[in-house]
Design a protein around this nucleic acid. Sequence first.
DNA 1: TCTGGGGTCCTAGGACCC
DNA 2: TCTGGGGTCCTAGGACCC
Length: 423
Amino acid sequence: MTARSFALVDCNNFYVSCERVFDPVLEGRPVLVLSNNDGCIIARSDEVKALGIVMGTPLFEARPLIEEHGIEVYSSNYVLYGDMSGRVMSLLGGFTPNLEIYSIDEAFLDFSGFGSLDLTRHGLEIRDRVRRCTGIPVSIGIAPTKTLAKLANRIAKKSPGAGGVFELNPLEDRHGALSGTAVRDVWGIGRNYARMLNRNGIHSALDLHDAPGPWVRRRMGVAGARTWLELRGISCIETQTQTEDRKSAVVSRSFKRPLERLEELREAVAAFAERAAEKIRRQNLAAASVIVFIHTNRFASEDGRYKNATTVNLPMADNHTGRISKAALGGLEHIFRPGRRYKKAGVMLVGLEPEKTVQPDLFTSARDGRGEKLMKAFDGINRKFGAGKIRYAATGIGQTWRTAPMRRSPRYTTNWDELPGVW
DNA sequence: TCTGGGGTCCTAGGACCC
DNA sequence: TCTGGGGTCCTAGGACCC
């Protein structure tokens, strides 16, 4: 068996860093980025973290600190972040043939077999190159397993002296690193397992490493057992270099103002269905069923609370906006109850399969092709002239349930009208 | 007043079959 | 009163991730 080596490259405060690239005045200032609807804080600069504002804090709770410290507040700009992510990932791809894009701001690089190469130095070069070419600062953790690389990455972020790169290889290193990491911060250990582990006297990553394997397997299943092995340096979570077809696609939103009328809800659900269908068409997939769900305010008191979902099976796997929308609206009729204040709705497409393999069922004649041509034209126009340029009428003209983001940066990199100017 | 969105995998239990 | 032993498939819910 050959020794394995993985690097986890993670963009620092990614959304904030993207905003800073295009507005360098933000450098050194406290900056935060909000979720959809400007509801929660989902990205924070180091300055904001230092003020004790935690991930996911509702905006209204942070208001006093925001004003007191003059924090710069941005609505999220996913088009910009997605584009910046692509640039970072394509640079990383130049450093290894085995790149796993793990999320919008993280990637694993499989360095197994790089032999005697000084990996720390290699990491420093990667960091430097990404910084120079994109303006995004990254941290890099290097270790014999992905779980340990994650852990090393945390250490790299927290130790300013490390130059943003931390390699966790020699055995003696591992002891200190594991004992200094809370078990809650181990990749694969969430809130619930952390609580269970704490109850059983396991507080650090080292405690988990030292726990008996069969006990971990019994209490935490195969996923827990894998984490345990990985902490011990035995690699068992493979690099996934090829992205497989997704298995589901969801489009859902919370509403700033609760919706009560069926007509408004219908517009929202039609709009979600339209976007979900576009999403799967882009990947040449078709869905077997459509799930629609609605619920009232989950923070409200017990009475008046309502949530429901229903699944509508399609006659044959489909990705046509009209038919998916119709199915979703049909489902909505079933679960809608008048007199409730709905806070959120969504459409989920499941049972996805490549559109080429779709089998017509006994009662549905094969497609005539007209619907497909219409969809291609539809997608083509929206690609060329901007998303949402043409829409189905069912999605509503006014879309009063939508709210404009408070403060979104321009789409510098993807929209001709919003290119940064030079004066 | 104001509280995000989008995914994956695993497990337990029931239905059904031989 | 005794009353097998599997296997497979599906679903709901729980756990995790970013």
